[in-house]
Design a protein around this nucleic acid. Structure first.
Lengths: 158, 158
DNA sequence: TTAGCGATGCTGTACGAAACCTGCCTCAGA
DNA sequence: TCTGAGGCAGGTTTCGTACAGCATCGCTAA
């Protein structure tokens, strides 16, 4: 599977439309026609998280198996599906950002795309700058997480 | 089956009628003519829960197997079916929200539709905003519900 | 090494179609 | 006869699509 990598800044027009970097679209390949899922990251970062549609289907299958009579499970479902917007590409490779996500992320007339491998994020410039600073500190403090390949790999590696 | 995804806001007229988002109607497909079931979520969220008719039949089959001579079982049945309203679409894709559900959810002249995959919810705007905030914390604390693939997969995996 | 050319990608505008909202009309029941 | 619910039709707005211009990047040739 292809990867979303590097950063780029794009204009958001009056309709809330924004071009997705061509590299990201290329990475989507056949999944381009299915569009993207956009939502608020569960960890609370002030940005828009973007996923290929196939990832959404995966999520839904997991959430489907959760009990409907538990507030915790339903809260999780609300955050992972209820805040999610399904958007499709126009002929020029643009998507429309929903109002509530623009408001949440602070994006107005410009958006920065940040590749994160299998997903990517969309940020307002100043919020991203602040996030860069704060994560640098946190990352430095937690770099040791990478230093235990034995247990970590056993779980996650495919 | 198509999915209910994304959010949208619609006006409620004086008669309690509201347009269901066209994408949701499209997702219903053939089930459109059968209408929807509306009720209060079991977990107590202050919104209206909406289900395709086929989902109601599923629930009914489950309840059918419960003993009719136990108060607990009958209470459950009351909550799941006794508070449920069956609504149908008019020619313009609208449904009528019953008074008791509008009162319960606080919906007056505007309603926000929230897709949750196989079901969707209808919220009053401020209640939804508050719910978004509170569920984010709960979801973050319970994200580990998704992190136990071993037991979940054993049941659900095809 | 640099200038020129072509291709690709991004942005803005315009038009048509669909969706949505409002008001009016009709019918049924009290 | 009055009231309320449901159906119908018009107008407005939004959305999706198409088209065109501009900028940027990379390649080629001088």
């Amino acid at each position: 599977m292809a990867l979303f990598l590097s950063r780029s800044v794009h204009k958001v027009d009056k309709k809330g439309r924004v071009s997705v970097p061509s590299g990201f679209r290329a990475a989507l390949g056949d999944e381009l026609v299915q569009g993207l899922g956009l939502n608020m990251p569960i960890v609370g970062f002030a940005c828009i998280e973007a996923l290929p549609f196939s990832k959404i289907e995966e999520r839904m299958n997991v959430l489907d198996s959760l009990p409907v009579d538990e507030a915790e499970a339903m809260s999780l479902a609300h955050q992972m599906l209820g805040t999610l917007a399904h958007v499709t590409f126009d002929g020029e490779g643009r998507i429309v950002l929903p109002d509530y996500l623009m408001e949440y992320s602070g994006i107005r007339d410009s958006a920065t795309f940040v590749g994160l491998g299998r997903t990517f994020q969309i940020w307002e410039a100043e919020a991203l700058a602040a996030h860069d600073v704060s994560t640098r500190t946190i990352a430095r403090d937690n770099i040791k997480l990478l230093r235990k390949p034995t247990s970590a790999q056993a779980e996650g590696e495919t």
